[in-house]
Amino acid sequence: MGLRKYLEILKIFIKTQLAWRGDSVIQILFSLTKILFASLLWGTIFAGRDEVAGFTLSSMMSYYIISSFLTQLDMSSKVSMEISQRIRNGTFSKYMVLPVNIQGYFVAMEMGMVLFHLIIYFITSVIWIFVFRIKFVFTPDPAIVAGIGILILLGLFFMAQLNYYLGLLTLKYEEIGLFLMIKDNLVAFVTGSIIPLTLLPEHFLWIMKAFPFYYVTYLPSMLLIGRLKGELGMGLLALSCWCVVLQAVIHVTWQNYRIKYDGVGI
């Protein structure tokens, strides 16, 4: 019974996405420009070379398509924006008066948006791979694929937690633009969605492994193109630990800061 309400929230947000047909078409077309840009960039870098840092052009393009796909799937920045905006304008009470776990509401909201975009981006990625005749490199091991699936889900959950936490900080700091900017820049670089982290110095990679972002996009992308297989177990464990720690931080933050909410403007 308890889960049904979150399933309904998830469904509501899929329906909300479906209401905007124009948005969906633009998103499909926009993904084309990203692939075109990546083809040009990596085509130039690979000109006259078979390999760069152990990557062939095909494996690099496969990495780029997968990591872009995973990065686009993460809709969690909407969670922090929504919470922050509503706390600032006094309408966060909309969630406080409902008999639901507020974090659960936002996680379900993100899952609804992710599911919708998963279908859209999956279809478009397959179309572009076919159109551009990219030799797609993909791990054949179903057990690894299943493990990666769990890692991706954990990563999405962690990002939802992080953004929920940052949103809650509005209760104390009122303005969290700076926190969000730091997070966005860190995530864009550290998740490896711009360039594979293996192109960076070895010691930098070790530092990154201590942080959760390494496991959110970079590791699943590398695993999906058949690399770093030995790191799957470690990734699952590390990300699970980060989720548990962040959940405890969220609990303490909510208990301490919710009494600061004054709901101004209503």
Binding site: M1, R4, K5, L7, E8, I9, I12, K15, T16, A19, W20, T91, S93, K94, V97, L98, P99, V100, I266
Partner: peptide, 28 residues
């Protein structure tokens, strides 16, 4: 229940029936 005249619990992109279905589940 609380109704604030200047604030809405409804989803503007969806129908009222959709929102009511959500509330049905939320309130069990």
């Amino acid at each position: 229940a609380v109704v604030m005249g200047q604030k809405s619990q409804l989803f503007f992109e969806l129908t009222v029936e959709d929102t009511l279905r959500l509330f049905k589940e939320i309130y069990g």
